[in-house]
Amino acid sequence: MHNLTENLKKITVFSELSSTELRQLSGYFQPFSCDAGTRIIAQATSHNGLYLILTGSVEVRLKIFGGGELSIAKLKAFDAFGEISLISRYPATANVIAEEAVSGLLLTPISMETISVIYPQLADKIKSAIALRCCQRSRLLLKHLPSKINHQHSWSEPTVMKRAFVSEISTFNITDLHHFLKTPQLKPLPIPFFNALHQDEIDILNPWVKLSVVYRGDDVKYSPTDENGFYGLLWGAVQAVILGEHMVKVSTYGPGDLFGTIEYIDRLPPPYRYVAREDAVYLSVSEKGMVNIKNKSPAVWGKIMRLLLASVGSQMSNINWIFLQLNIEDVYKVSQGKSHV
């Protein structure tokens, strides 16, 4: 057990855990082993959890657009891979193949959920560390992204114009989340963010939510009250874009999607601009609001955090996907060190 906790401490996402927490965590790993040549993780499929190699080695390979695979990393004893699966259900972004017979330990998403119930603070710490790693990698990839846009992917500069007619949004009551959610247009909608919360939980959230409107073509802007906050889109469309010589469309958000989550987790400036592609209503929750929600109801806070972390995971997956497809060789350059699958 001592050896295991020592080894777990070497893994980046567990490095901030105390000895007690590492001991609590160690009981949830299960053994795994496979023969040389086994495909442990298949690109573009769901994967099983965080793998810790104890003996043997694996190769991380990217399937290249146009056929073939590129080896990008070799991992050996006490390296880990697959941690993203603990916060996001998005498909793996690379293949992991056993170079030689491998034995090790596996922490599955189901075990992680059990930890969330028994040791919620421990689970939060681990997931936050994984989310932070996702943010770091996302920013690294985004830094290189605009220069990778070439003629084939040349998205012309937007010429966004506001619409000439009065927006439907003017008919909404946007002073209060409760009232807003009762507007006829929203009633039938399966908005994931609110489906995850019960009515009484929305009551807890409501005082700390600010509803705002952004019109087509305008940027969603930070205000002092929103500082270190995140957003949830309720109506309309917002697109995350990087504007340079060309426009890179990173993500498009619709009702129920969270955005601004990378900067909420890593506390750095937004990695891209958020432009309204349609008139939109969005909520923002500040860090101060989250602290108050946590004090009032750790359970509601935990639910919101899980949605935030999943959003970060999906952002990274999306950015990774765009990057892979734009320039496979550069992934090798920015992915040195421990692989992130």
Binding site: G66, E168, Q185, W235, G236, G254, P255, E278
Partner: peptide, 24 residues
Amino acid sequence: DYGHYVPGIMDAHLAYHSLWYTLG
């Protein structure tokens, strides 16, 4: 008018419709 839904909208219409390409 993505994200401007009407009551009774089908599930198939909630997401932004997909489009992919492959080249070689």
